[in-house]
């Protein structure tokens, strides 16, 4: 049951990425190109997704617990700290070079473009490296339990 609903959720997400044009790096790069061939489409993707999630989350939270068991696991951290901002900046640079963020890169994988085929393994390696880096002394939260 959980696995089937997981699959359906991922499928809806992937169809949304394709329909919205977000799975096309050319569109993403043009959105980021304010001074050139600017394509504002992605603002509407983000807007449509955030507003839908804003309303839907509040309906979902009324239930008190997730439908398939467990409890709501919502990030509690409010710190705007060094790992957050350094990570977001590095991510933004990579996004600006490749035109892919994690979701679109994965959903584009079966289309087998050479750029996607090298991007995704590098991203997976990066996810692992980043998780290690987060524990490095310059990023580890001061005073946090070790």
């Amino acid at each position: 049951m959980r696995m089937m609903w997981g699959f359906l959720s991922g499928l809806v997400f992937g169809l949304g990425l394709i329909l919205s044009g977000m799975a096309d790096p050319a569109k993403v790069l043009n959105f980021l190109d304010l001074a050139g061939s600017w394509d504002p489409s992605l603002a509407f993707v983000m807007g449509g997704a955030s507003v839908t999630a804003f309303i839907g989350y509040r309906l979902a939270w009324r239930r008190g617990a997730p439908v398939l068991g467990g409890e709501f696991d919502i990030p509690q951290s409010r710190r705007i700290d060094r790992p957050l901002l350094t990570g977001a900046a590095l991510f933004g640079i990579g996004w600006g070079i490749g035109g892919f963020c994690p979701g679109p890169a994965l959903t584009a994988l079966p289309l087998l473009a050479p750029g996607t085929l090298v991007f995704v393994p590098a991203m997976l390696a990066g996810l692992w490296l980043g998780a290690q880096l987060k524990r490095a002394p310059i990023f580890a939260a001061r005073g946090a339990a070790t």
Partner: peptide, 17 residues
Amino acid sequence: AMVLAGLLVGIGTALGS
């Protein structure tokens, strides 16, 4: 460039949660 982009996206999103 795509390898570099992938690495940066992976490291950045892991570090930035």
